[in-house]
Protein backbone atom coordinates (compact mmCIF):
# COMPACT_ATOMS: atom_id res chain seq x y z
CA UNK A 1 0.00 0.00 0.00
CA UNK A 2 1.10 3.52 -0.70
CA UNK A 3 0.28 6.88 0.72
CA UNK A 4 0.10 9.69 -1.81
CA UNK A 5 0.44 13.22 -0.50
CA UNK A 6 -0.35 15.80 -3.11
CA UNK A 7 0.17 19.51 -2.51
CA UNK A 8 -2.19 21.34 -4.86
CA UNK A 9 -3.78 24.71 -5.54
CA UNK A 10 -6.91 25.46 -3.51
CA UNK A 11 -9.23 25.89 -6.44
CA UNK A 12 -8.17 22.58 -7.97
CA UNK A 13 -9.59 20.54 -5.09
CA UNK A 14 -12.94 19.82 -6.71
CA UNK A 15 -11.28 18.75 -9.97
CA UNK A 16 -8.82 16.49 -8.18
CA UNK A 17 -11.54 14.97 -6.05
CA UNK A 18 -13.60 14.23 -9.11
CA UNK A 19 -10.68 12.75 -11.03
CA UNK A 20 -9.77 10.50 -8.11
CA UNK A 21 -13.35 9.41 -7.58
CA UNK A 22 -13.62 8.61 -11.29
CA UNK A 23 -10.45 6.55 -10.97
CA UNK A 24 -12.15 4.49 -8.28
CA UNK A 25 -10.53 5.99 -5.21
CA UNK A 26 -13.07 6.13 -2.43
CA UNK A 27 -11.55 8.20 0.33
CA UNK A 28 -9.17 11.04 0.98
CA UNK A 29 -8.27 13.65 3.55
CA UNK A 30 -7.41 17.27 2.98
CA UNK A 31 -5.73 19.89 5.08
CA UNK A 32 -4.53 23.41 4.59
CA UNK A 33 -0.80 23.81 4.49
CA UNK A 34 1.63 26.51 3.53
CA UNK A 35 4.82 25.95 1.67
CA UNK A 36 7.00 26.89 -1.20
CA UNK A 37 9.03 25.32 -3.94
CA UNK A 38 9.89 26.96 -7.23
CA UNK A 39 7.01 29.39 -6.77
CA UNK A 40 8.30 32.04 -4.44
CA UNK A 41 6.00 34.22 -2.47
CA UNK A 42 4.66 37.67 -2.88
CA UNK A 43 5.09 40.87 -0.95
CA UNK A 44 2.63 42.07 1.64
CA UNK A 45 2.70 45.49 3.22
CA UNK A 46 1.34 46.33 6.61
CA UNK A 47 1.64 50.00 7.55
CA UNK A 48 4.79 50.33 5.54
CA UNK A 49 6.42 47.20 6.92
CA UNK A 50 7.00 44.88 4.01
CA UNK A 51 6.94 41.14 4.37
CA UNK A 52 7.91 38.59 1.79
CA UNK A 53 5.49 35.78 2.21
CA UNK A 54 7.25 32.70 0.90
CA UNK A 55 4.84 30.25 2.39
CA UNK A 56 2.02 30.16 -0.07
CA UNK A 57 -1.29 28.67 1.01
CA UNK A 58 -1.92 25.28 -0.56
CA UNK A 59 -3.99 22.22 0.10
CA UNK A 60 -2.50 18.87 0.94
CA UNK A 61 -4.55 15.93 -0.26
CA UNK A 62 -3.73 12.54 1.21
CA UNK A 63 -4.86 9.35 -0.45
CA UNK A 64 -4.06 5.76 0.40
CA UNK A 65 -4.12 3.22 -2.41
CA UNK A 66 -3.22 -0.37 -3.05
CA UNK A 67 -0.06 -0.73 -5.14
CA UNK A 68 -1.83 -1.60 -8.45
CA UNK A 69 -3.93 1.58 -8.19
CA UNK A 70 -0.95 3.84 -7.64
CA UNK A 71 -0.32 4.78 -11.21
CA UNK A 72 -3.90 5.63 -12.07
CA UNK A 73 -4.20 7.70 -8.90
CA UNK A 74 -1.06 9.65 -9.74
CA UNK A 75 -2.27 10.20 -13.28
CA UNK A 76 -5.61 11.41 -12.04
CA UNK A 77 -3.99 13.95 -9.75
CA UNK A 78 -1.39 15.11 -12.24
CA UNK A 79 -3.86 15.74 -15.02
CA UNK A 80 -6.52 17.36 -12.88
CA UNK A 81 -4.23 19.59 -10.80
CA UNK A 82 -2.11 20.83 -13.68
CA UNK A 83 -2.27 24.39 -14.97
CA UNK A 84 1.22 24.49 -16.45
CA UNK A 85 2.22 27.48 -14.31
CA UNK A 86 4.75 27.48 -11.52
CA UNK A 87 2.93 26.64 -8.29
CA UNK A 88 0.94 23.61 -9.40
CA UNK A 89 2.32 21.62 -6.48
CA UNK A 90 3.99 18.28 -5.91
CA UNK A 91 3.10 14.67 -5.23
CA UNK A 92 4.93 12.65 -2.59
CA UNK A 93 4.61 8.87 -2.31
CA UNK A 94 5.56 6.71 0.64
CA UNK A 95 4.99 3.08 1.57
CA UNK A 96 2.45 2.29 4.15
CA UNK A 97 2.89 -0.66 6.46
CA UNK A 98 -0.69 -1.05 7.49
CA UNK A 99 -4.16 0.47 7.40
CA UNK A 100 -6.80 -0.25 10.01
CA UNK A 101 -10.47 0.70 9.83
CA UNK A 102 -11.41 1.83 13.33
CA UNK A 103 -15.07 0.82 13.17
CA UNK A 104 -14.45 -2.83 12.24
CA UNK A 105 -10.80 -3.43 12.96
CA UNK A 106 -10.24 -4.66 9.38
CA UNK A 107 -6.63 -4.28 8.29
CA UNK A 108 -4.62 -4.00 5.11
CA UNK A 109 -6.12 -3.50 1.68
CA UNK A 110 -9.62 -4.29 2.93
CA UNK A 111 -9.47 -1.29 5.20
CA UNK A 112 -8.69 1.20 2.45
Amino acid sequence: MKKIEAVIRHYKLEDVKKALTDAGIVGMTVCEVRGFGRQRGHKEQYRGAEYTVDFMPKLKVEVVVDDPQLESAINAITTSAQTGNVGDGKIFISSLEDVIRIRTGETGVEAI
Binding site: G27, L96, E97, V99, I100, I102, R103
Partner: peptide, 23 residues
Amino acid sequence: VIDTILQTARTGQIGDGKIFVTN
Protein backbone atom coordinates in the same frame (compact mmCIF):
# COMPACT_ATOMS: atom_id res chain seq x y z
CA VAL B 1 -1.05 1.97 20.66
CA ILE B 2 -3.23 0.67 17.82
CA ASP B 3 -5.39 -1.37 20.19
CA THR B 4 -5.88 1.61 22.44
CA ILE B 5 -6.95 3.84 19.57
CA LEU B 6 -9.26 1.17 18.22
CA GLN B 7 -10.93 0.67 21.60
CA THR B 8 -11.42 4.31 22.42
CA ALA B 9 -12.16 5.83 19.01
CA ARG B 10 -14.67 3.22 17.94
CA THR B 11 -18.40 3.87 18.02
CA GLY B 12 -19.35 1.20 15.48
CA GLN B 13 -20.89 3.78 13.15
CA ILE B 14 -19.58 4.65 9.72
CA GLY B 15 -17.22 7.58 10.09
CA ASP B 16 -15.05 6.27 12.94
CA GLY B 17 -11.94 6.89 10.86
CA LYS B 18 -8.79 5.00 9.93
CA ILE B 19 -5.33 4.30 11.22
CA PHE B 20 -2.32 4.45 8.91
CA VAL B 21 1.00 2.95 9.95
CA THR B 22 4.28 3.87 8.32
CA ASN B 23 7.82 2.94 9.05
